[in-house]
Design a protein around this nucleic acid. Structure first.
Length: 304
DNA sequence: ACTATTTGACCGGC
DNA sequence: GCCGGTCAAATAGT
């Protein structure tokens, strides 16, 4: 059922990604002409490498190994070794699983929502502790959304994220966005690992993107209904969630998928989607279908 | 001063 | 009694 989707979807995604890659290369060449765009070039190369990595992730996890399926699932497996308790737990998990942060970031994903960490626990048999988060607006708005984040044993850069409940809170920034707050057109979280110019990037991002590591009030709780792509102008706002902001030295492509609200960004989403596509989260729906839309839309909007 | 994170303690299920 | 999940005081960051 899902294997078909995963494979076909992944293939298509790889194709699309390759296309993006080429376009980025072209972009890079053009940027090369006008020497004043170092930053742009830097970004382009980062995008390029990230895409490459994403492709690699997909191909390696999806096309080769049969039983292994994907990093996501593997991660899930090791994160939750099958005990009764966990089995029971997974049952109640609604939007679960999601791998992410292939950027070697210290922290998991920034899924666009505003989370507040309320606990951390060493889990038996797991190398890394599990973090417990809930919606920042839990009290103010009674939002019951929660999530658990845990690194996988094999690959610390990959996180299992379990979403519990759905956001019922009202996005604070929606009003701000509607008010016409300018936002960087494509504020993608470029991986900065191994980037010696982190400082530069930082200053840049502070000036042009929502990436500055402030856990500002500008947090977003995505409204489930929101059409992912109908209003790109408002979907790019990517506040670093508190959970992420605290120690996130390596902004990285993050992916997430909590059912309804999993498509709210530009290129970042494209890359995110890759892994998502290759690893259909258990209860998650037709990921691949949406994925294709994502790719389509993103490519055009990003490179337009 | 306010808000978020950390972390040890506590609680409930098994 | 063990383990995962949550609470809440202490601490840190802004």
């Amino acid at each position: 059922m899902e294997s078909f989707d995963a494979n076909v979807g992944s293939r298509l995604v790889v194709t699309e990604l390759s296309h993006i890659k080429e376009l980025v290369m072209q972009l890079e060449e053009h940027l090369g002409g006008c020497g004043s765009h170092d930053l742009c070039k830097l970004l382009a190369s980062q995008i390029f490498s990230t895409i490459e990595r994403s492709i690699g992730m997909i191909t390696s996890s999806n096309f080769d190994s049969g039983p292994k399926r994907s990093a996501a699932v593997v991660g899930l497996a090791d994160g939750f070794k099958t005990t009764k308790k966990r089995k029971k737990m997974t049952e109640k998990m609604k939007n679960q699983v999601k791998v992410s942060s292939a950027g070697g970031g210290e922290t998991p994903v920034d899924d666009g929502n505003s989370w507040r960490k309320y606990g951390q626990k060493e889990i038996l048999g797991a190398k890394y502790p599990r973090g417990y988060y809930r919606c920042t607006y839990r009290h103010s708005q009674g939002c019951a959304a929660m999530k658990q984040v845990q690194r996988t044993d094999e690959d610390p850069t990959i996180f299992n994220v379990f979403y519990l409940g759905t956001h019922t809170c009202v996005p604070k920034t929606e009003a701000a966005a509607a008010a016409g707050i300018p936002e960087a057109s494509v504020t993608m979280t470029v991986k900065t690992e191994g980037l010696a110019v982190a400082g530069d990037l930082k200053s840049w991002s502070t000036a042009t993107t929502p990436f500055h590591k402030s856990s500002t009030p500008a947090s977003v709780c995505l409204a489930p209904e929101r059409s992912p792509f109908s209003a790109p102008s408002t979907s790019v706002n990517w506040p670093v969630s508190p959970a992420t902001s605290g120690s996130n030295h390596n902004p990285s492509f993050s992916l997430y998928n909590a059912s309804e609200w999993w498509a709210h960004s530009e290129l970042q989403e494209v890359v995110s989607a890759l892994v998502v596509a290759s690893t259909p989260p258990v209860p998650a729906m037709d990921v691949t279908d949406e994925l294709l839309d994502v790719v389509d839309m993103d490519v055009s909007s990003f490179l337009a």
